[in-house]
Write a protein that binds this DNA or RNA. Structure first.
Lengths: 361, 361
DNA sequence: ATCATATGTTGCAGTCAACAACAAATCTCG
DNA sequence: CGAGATTTGTTGTTGACTGCAACATATGAT
């Protein structure tokens, strides 16, 4: 139960201050006063509080150029609160230790040659995992309360990844799906901050999507885009259904495939061009259902879907136009992510920091 | 900007107390102390506060049966805060004036014989609309910031209903879609309270759906179920697309149709039975996409979809099974609503009360 | 009838944010 | 180069709120 009382008020304000600095970078006390709507003296007390506990660092005296006494600059101390983030793919595991404020303190990567990703995570995070306040793993698949219910890319069904990671590393883990993590990343550290409802499509060995509304991941916002049925009674999919997008589009299962096809199409290969067009149309049709069901205002094409979209924007758009109402379409922006393939890792760390900051309240 | 300070704390606690009583009905001060996690003395002060302002009424002395001094019962005063709710359909307008605590104080209904619904609302609400703290209108269609972007049932596209209602009644209105309102209603006053993510399907002259997560309507949670494309390149729909569920299922556009068909099928009419089965399959396929995209744990079949589901549960379930992953399906409950066709009206009022209570903070 | 039990009430203490007055640091204008 | 204007940090005070403990009150149990 949430504690009450006046101390609660203080904790909330402290957390709000840290969140503000974490999200918007170093700011002066004057700016913080404006942003949080608190009194100068209150900000002073909070900052002193947090400086003493080591979360913040104050730099006095920087001149602003305008008149008046210059305001002291206050910034996060990265090492004061760290989050371990890993992104698991079929072929590799990436790790980053991120400090408060978003600075990446450490970074590592391991190729997987048949080794279990959980072991690789234990090795690649080393001792750092234990010191971090939160640890978050992004996996491409349908995640429900730490359990990977389905992952085409990893071939998992019902694997309790949170438990496995916990026993391998000796600490608690949060598990999120790659697409949702990437959506969070693009929203918080990319340029999708104005988006009210952001849909991120991730192309790996499977197709997943993640939804972020008002900057927060939706409960059950992990979408198995690859298992939207676009052709009832169509090709058999590995998941047991028929006519899944993944099965119908299986021409392009890897980043290399799409690059080859794009290159061939550019050289006049009609077959490749046709394949791109049909894949774009399949994707657009699946998107139509997702857009109708979720109503996003922005869609980002990540992973190898980025290449597909850049090569086949027209068929994607026209198939989308044939399967969504004009109003849903008119407010919709289609783009590619700006964080590249770092989005999921960054988003995973932001998911961790959200928990850290929530824990301060 | 949110005011701060210690008074903020008081407002929050006052609002929490009112919310608790509104949602769970009359409770003793001892129960409130437990539920809100506050001190006895604090509850006493808050209750005295609210009793003086007329929101609450305290009944002293009711014996509980067990030992100890009996706790005073505290309950909402319905007239202290009222909400105007209307449900607009193609054939009629329903109105209810609801008091704090959920009691219906007034109720009215008008058949529409070609008159504009907005005029009917102005007439049917009479003077009461002006006194209510909030006024909420539920309409079957895609709603975005007070504007009805698309409504098959009403034949509207881009009508600024909030503005029209405001000029007709002299007060501000909130507009929500019928399915989302009904979802809110079933969650708050029906028996779907344990549902984490509730999908309500509403069958009127069009098919809409609404999503409620953790009891709150999702931003853009209004789903045009009828315009999920189930047959790419299929029958032309009035909306301009092809193969929409509404166009493919148009056999049953009215409640009477489905009743006739059910009756005929029961008497052995093979054609009717076949039509029911095919409609169930179409619905199940459209649902597959929506379930994959939104991941609900409960689906309620409202409006005439209730009758369809009761007559054709098997084809709905099997088509759903062919288009969704096992994990999404396994945690999914399919049911019919308990509030009947009152759900949307009740949910609209609850939407209003949510705003009222938020306004107290 | 007395005691145990549960709850309302009251006065007090601790904490917090706002406010105002003052001190400090910078810019601007003559 | 210096005085005033301007903006911000600092400090002491004030009003408000919640928790706590002691006491009063109302019921059931013995």
């Amino acid at each position: 139960m949430a504690r009450t009382g006046t101390e609660e008020l203080r904790r909330r304000n402290r957390a709000a201050l840290v969140e503000q600095l974490h999200r918007h970078g170093p700011q002066t006390r004057a700016e913080l006063t404006e942003a949080l709507g608190l009194n100068r003296s209150t900000i002073g007390a909070l900052a002193a509080d947090l400086a003493e506990s080591g979360h913040l660092h104050e730099t006095t005296g920087r001149s602003t150029g305008s008149a008046g006494r210059p305001s002291t600059l206050v910034e996060c101390v990265p090492k004061a609160a760290t989050v371990t983030a890993v992104e698991i793919r079929a072929d590799r595991v990436r790790f980053a230790l991120v400090g408060l404020g978003g600075e990446v303190l450490e970074r590592a990567e391991t190729e997987l040659d048949g080794t279990d990703p959980v072991e690789a995570v234990a090795v690649v995070t080393g001792g750092t995992a234990r010191d971090a306040l939160e640890a978050v793993a992004a996996v491409p698949g349908l995640v429900d309360a730490g359990v990977v219910a389905h992952s085409t890319e990893l071939g998992w069904a019902g694997r309790d990844l949170a438990a496995d990671l916990a026993s391998a590393t000796g600490r608690a883990w949060q598990v999120v799906d790659t697409a949702t993590a990437a959506a969070v990343g693009e929203w918080s550290r990319g340029d999708a901050h104005e988006s009210v409802k952001l849909l991120y499509l991730h192309g790996g060995r499977g197709l997943t999507a993640g939804l972020v509304a008002d900057g927060r991941a939706q409960r059950g916002g992990s979408i198995q885009l690859g298992h939207i049925v676009v052709q009832p009674g169509g090709r058999e999919c590995a998941c047991g259904l028929r006519g899944c997008l993944e099965a119908e589009m299986e021409v392009f299962g890897y980043a290399e495939d799409i690059e080859h096809a794009t290159a061939a199409a550019g050289m006049g290969d009609a077959l490749a061009r046709d394949g791109l067009r049909r894949s774009g149309e399949d994707l657009g049709r699946a998107l139509g259902a997702v857009v109708t069901a979720t109503g996003p205002d922005e869609i980002l094409f990540g992973g190898w879907l980025r290449e597909l979209y850049l090569s086949a924007a027209a068929p994607v758009r026209s198939a989308l136009a044939e399967t969504t109402l004009p109003h849903l379409r008119s407010r919709l922006r289609l783009r590619t992510p700006v964080l590249g393939d770092e989005g999921a890792l960054i988003g995973a760390s932001e998911t961790g920091f959200a928990a850290v900051i929530d824990g301060m309240r």
